[in-house]
Design a protein around this nucleic acid. Sequence first.
DNA 1: TGCCTGTTGCAAACGGTTCGCAACTATGGA
DNA 2: TCCATAGTTGCGAACCGTTTGCAACAGGCA
Lengths: 154, 154
Amino acid sequence: MSSRRHEDPGLLERMKARGLRLTGQRRVLADLLENAEEHLDAEEVFQRARVADGAIHRATVYRTLNTLKKLGLVDELDLMHVSGERHYYEIRPSTLHIHLVCTACKGVEEPSERFWEDLKRRVEHDNGFRPEVVRIEMAGICKSCQRKRARSTA
Amino acid sequence: MSSRRHEDPGLLERMKARGLRLTGQRRVLADLLENAEEHLDAEEVFQRARVADGAIHRATVYRTLNTLKKLGLVDELDLMHVSGERHYYEIRPSTLHIHLVCTACKGVEEPSERFWEDLKRRVEHDNGFRPEVVRIEMAGICKSCQRKRARSTA
DNA sequence: TGCCTGTTGCAAACGGTTCGCAACTATGGA
DNA sequence: TCCATAGTTGCGAACCGTTTGCAACAGGCA
């Protein structure tokens, strides 16, 4: 989730660059989103934020997530509803989201960017469409669950 | 949206095959979903259903959409929030959704299946992940809007 | 035809999200 | 460093799309 290079600006810097005030609450939220090791929904973001700032209000979380979403710094995802109706938030490292969601173990993989480069070229060539932001979600069976199944039916 | 072949069963047949009762309300909804020429959100589905059956209740629409979603006969999409927060419903012709959403004209294209065949092979080979259901959403600029822009800056 | 169970209409309840407002505070300039 | 100002926050009520409980109704099968 947090795969930023050493050089590129963190979420907080990007927020500042967009003219947002860096309040304590926003520092907490930016830090939390940037270091989340899994996809969080709004309520989870709120719960985690409260650990760092017991007084932070739910409305602040919603407002900030919306602000970030509007600025394109964060994306809202549903991961194909594999785990119910929840909506998840994640920082947008570039313009790319590729999620492979395993319907067996509910795990989420995020493959490399090479993938996307080819795909982009292809769409541009075949369809004349110039993609800027992409979201690819695939639900299926991951490698290790395939192995597990193979073993159990052997 | 409604790209069924002459042979494969329509939504109504698939509903029956899953053991659902074919009530008047469900016929209306199935017909409507199958023949929708654009993506509809729950409220739009309700409004259209009322044209055919003035007495149909909103709750019935929600219940039916949920039932169909659980059976995998219909999918819920957000089209990357290009047009706000609405969630759209569409019948699932197979296991595939590919949408190219133009951020300029808000148009939605759905490219061919060949696309997906290659992609699937590739993911399976490179990542060991076996995809079953796929959703690809790309936001960008469509061919005709690109032309329009080229003209206006010429 | 008649039973059985799934489905519907209705209206109230629900719950996540938003909103209005007063208090607060990050930020830039004096 | 201090101030002015405009962006943010906390609070709680309101909002609104969605769900639910229940009694009436109606498909589907014998």
